[in-house]
Amino acid sequence: MTAVDPVPFDKALAIGLLSDMLRIRRLEEAAAEWYGAGKIRGYLHLYIGQEAVAAGAVRCLSREDDIVATYREHGHALVRGVPMKAIMAEMFGKAAGCSRGRGGSMHLFDAAIRFFGGNAIVGGGLPLAVGLGLSARMLEESRISACFFGEGAVAEGAFHESMNLAALWRLPVLFCCENNLYAMGTALERSESQTDLCAKAESYKVTALRADGMDVASVHEVTRDALARVRSGAGPCFVEYRTYRFRAHSMFDPDLYRDRDEVEAWKKRGPIHTFSARLKAEGLLSEAEFLALDAKAMAEVSEAVAFAEAAPFEAVEDLARDVVAGEGP
């Protein structure tokens, strides 16, 4: 992939994709900074490096579609439309957060836009996506369910059971596997006898496609094709996005299992600077426009942080709220 490949869509979409990647990047950088300042606690899994996947794939979905994500889901939530203020407030643990401070970084939810959450059990979201697909079919609704997960999840039984159920019942489910090569600190080839992830999906008769997860254009194109298959009623589709996280697994990870040269080599393929270079080469983006987009993203982040800082915590008197519904039958 070189900087002179033509961008396969119009300027508005191209700028939208770039803008989303910038918003994710700036959000994640701020999250790291405020983690360092002690305002964000618990686990924090940064998405830096993988922005093209969320930006390119989520944009292909319609507003009616369902999304199930993982604990590295800030980007997916943001692109889906969870307000950045609500995401940041959630990370700060505040009542104005998108899960009222009960979820934190790993459990962002937004019912209004069918964002069924960050799931922190690896593979745990896949059966949910199968069930959401089943509900769409049985209720004769045209929505599909999209499930994001890392390549580490393919080692879980939940992956295999879900592939089988979705294919057996021909459900409208899009399985989005973000292969960033490491399940926490364990490289794919150190944990899987079969490292061809598409072959695993195909063994269940699930159509499998592959995208360059560092290239938002590739992500968008391949996801769009996969979605067309799913929407046609042909059953589930699996997409492997080859990507890489530039930061450690979490804030506790000393990142001792990867070679520095490997990380640097992937950074050269960073999704934001490569895509913006292509847009500039195509005449679709000027440096001034790029800087304006970035400044806008940073301003949005600043506002989100100010909002999160100022927001109150949920009253501890409301601790037991929302465990079960009010008095049952």
Partner: peptide
Amino acid sequence: GAGIGAALG
């Protein structure tokens, strides 16, 4: 899990 997803749906 599919039952949970179906209930959510």
